[in-house]
Design a protein around this nucleic acid. Structure first.
Lengths: 161, 161
DNA sequence: CGGCATCCTTAGGGATACTG
DNA sequence: CAGTATCCCTAAGGATGCCG
């Protein structure tokens, strides 16, 4: 019984191919701090304002300022001014497409935490608006099969010629 | 056009319910360092030995030692002695079930990095061993519908009575 | 409201050298 | 091979106070 993946093709020798281009490492360069991912979580929950991010994530303003700037620089959030009629100008941080596309990462973390770090399976739940059923993240192949980790082969990407 | 989720039920007031039990935050308490997730990546690639972890992740031995100890303490890896016939005793780190269950987190990070941080869609590929088709992580409801982020409602978990 | 400046502490991580 | 010890640097983050 092995839980590791099966490596195929030019991957076996492990000849240092990864350090340069591994996209997990690249993603972590942007997201490896706790505050960055929790700010993104808040953005999905609809938070848009500086003070709310700091308070709801539970971080100090200087940290919130630093992290929000980085996330804007990286293109995960967009900073916009807006003005409601009769009000003064405010700022808001909105998810960009790149930021919104991060949702599966947060769901994956939540699903793992729900299963392994909470005795009641986690405090919140995602449901499909149309049918009301719970939503989960699943590994699936292009042919539509649900796939277990043990059934996966890993190899270099084949460029479709 | 809004990319945030729709909050339902007792969730709207945002009354600080989250800080205590949010399982994303709990997961990040274990996994928020770059080296921890890269070590887990290596474990999925089949790495089992101390020196290989340090070298392939690209971290120093002291850091590898600290991180491996934490991951063993948290139950994501198991440290075992083994001896091949005629050889001396060696140590290895193996994925536990808890560790193996982290796979979707790494896939989610990889998928996001492939799309947004690499001009060629990422260096490696996951394929379903049975049918050879590429494997991706998808949001799906219990009724089998593929679900987009915009179609998800978030609410407190309802305990099935 | 939406920050920035300053100061401080801790954690992550590298380099080098050494041990069983 | 599988680490530990030591030293040092930088990044993450908290606390307080100030500013437009």
């Amino acid at each position: 019984m092995t839980t590791a993946l099966r490596l195929t093709g030019a991957l076996e020798p492990r000849s240092g191919w990864k350090a340069e281009r591994c996209t997990i490492a690249k993603a972590l360069a942007v997201l490896s701090t706790r505050s960055a991912l929790l700010i993104m979580r808040e953005a999905f929950y609809g938070t848009t304002r500086f003070d709310d991010f700091a308070e709801r994530v539970g971080i100090s303003e200087p940290v919130a300022a630093a992290r929000l700037r980085e996330l804007v620089d990286e293109g995960l959030l967009a900073r916009e001014d807006y003005r409601e009629p009769g009000q003064r100008t405010r700022q808001q941080y909105r998810l960009t497409e790149k930021g919104a596309d991060l949702f599966p990462v947060l769901v994956a973390l939540m699903q793992w935490g729900d299963r392994w770090l909470d005795d009641r399976g986690g405090p919140i739940e995602l449901r499909h608006r149309d049918c009301g059923e719970p939503v989960t993240l699943t590994l699936q192949c292009a042919a539509g099969h649900e796939v277990d980790t043990s059934e996966i082969d890993v190899g270099r990407r084949r460029r479709e010629a």
